[in-house]
Design a protein around this nucleic acid. Structure first.
Length: 270
DNA sequence: AATCTCGCCTGAAGGC
DNA sequence: TGCCTTCAGGCGAGAT
């Protein structure tokens, strides 16, 4: 499942192929993604891609008149291919460039999205409501502490709340809390300032490290099979239910929090 | 206002 | 082998 690092690595992988290139056509084969792909995405046709940005897990393909917004959902993959590359199952959207190259969006589960943000319209509410980027100075442990004072939700749900900080998905929430030694079930308001200050640093480290690793293991986005994939990262707790904790050798536990699988070590996380 | 729950999807994995 | 069931999950929307 693409988390922020995967989206950022995708951005880095596709950007050089897109920036400065005019869009010839936007081909929509399957409109029914998470939301219906709007007709307005065709407004990008004839315009030049000026930038490829990321905000949270959304990618913005900027033109002078607006941006095509892509979200990879759970199973979304981006490839840069020649336009004559045969379409495979779940190739839903193509952004075709005038040079014969095309950005191809494949998404089996269709939890992803392709939207249009007009440059002259207010930013759509969904995007405007997003909290700070985790890798900027707008986010740190002080913010976590301050926002958590009256929150009774589990700390894991709290750090996965997009209004608190964006881009912390299930895997990295689990991993960060393990490293910080915080029990994911603990009420957000019960977590100490000291723990939050550590957690803020750890979230940044975990995400940065994953991006670096993704950069080094980055598959070739221009190959037919060159999906970004999900880099093989070393996971300490995620998916390790019943296995031994790497620190204390206790059995890793799992519970459901916020309808998501949650893994932790009872001994190491208090 | 804060929190909880639902639903969109398909493919992989496991059971029989 | 093959069918059926279960699970995974980002995240907005609606309910509580």
């Amino acid at each position: 499942m693409p988390e922020l690092p995967e989206v950022e690595v995708s951005r880095l992988g596709i950007s050089p192929h897109l920036i400065g290139q005019p869009i010839k056509q936007v081909v929509v084969r399957h409109r029914q993604l998470r939301w219906l792909v709007p007709e307005d995405v065709h407004l990008a046709e004839g315009l030049t891609i000026e930038n490829v940005r990321r905000r949270a897990k959304y990618l913005f393909i900027d033109t002078a008149k607006g941006s095509i917004i892509l979200h990879l959902g759970m199973s979304g993959k981006l490839r840069v291919v020649n336009i004559d590359t045969p379409v495979i199952k779940h190739d839903h959207v193509d952004i075709v460039l005038t040079n014969g190259v095309c950005l191809r969006f494949n998404d089996a589960r269709r939890f992803g999205a392709c939207l249009w943000q007009d440059a002259n319209s207010p930013e759509m509410a969904m995007i405007a409501a997003l909290g700070p980027e985790p890798l900027t100075d707008d986010f740190d442990g002080h913010r976590l502490y301050d926002l958590s004072r009256n929150k009774s939700v589990a700390v894991k749900n709290f750090i996965m709340d997009n209004k608190v900080v964006v881009g912390v998905g299930n895997i990295y929430a689990n991993e960060s809390l393990f490293i910080a030694g915080i029990d994911p079930r603990k009420a957000a308001k019960q977590v100490s300032k000291k723990s939050y200050l550590a957690l803020g640093v750890i979230i940044k480290q975990v995400l940065r490290k994953a991006i670096e690793q993704g950069g080094t293991t980055l598959k070739d986005f221009t190959q037919a099979d060159g999906s970004p994939g999900y880099f093989a990262q070393h996971l300490r707790v995620y998916g390790r239910k019943g296995k031994a904790c790497e620190v204390c050798e206790c059995e890793i536990q799992s519970v459901t929090l916020g309808q998501r699988n949650t893994f932790f070590c009872e001994q190491c996380q208090k």
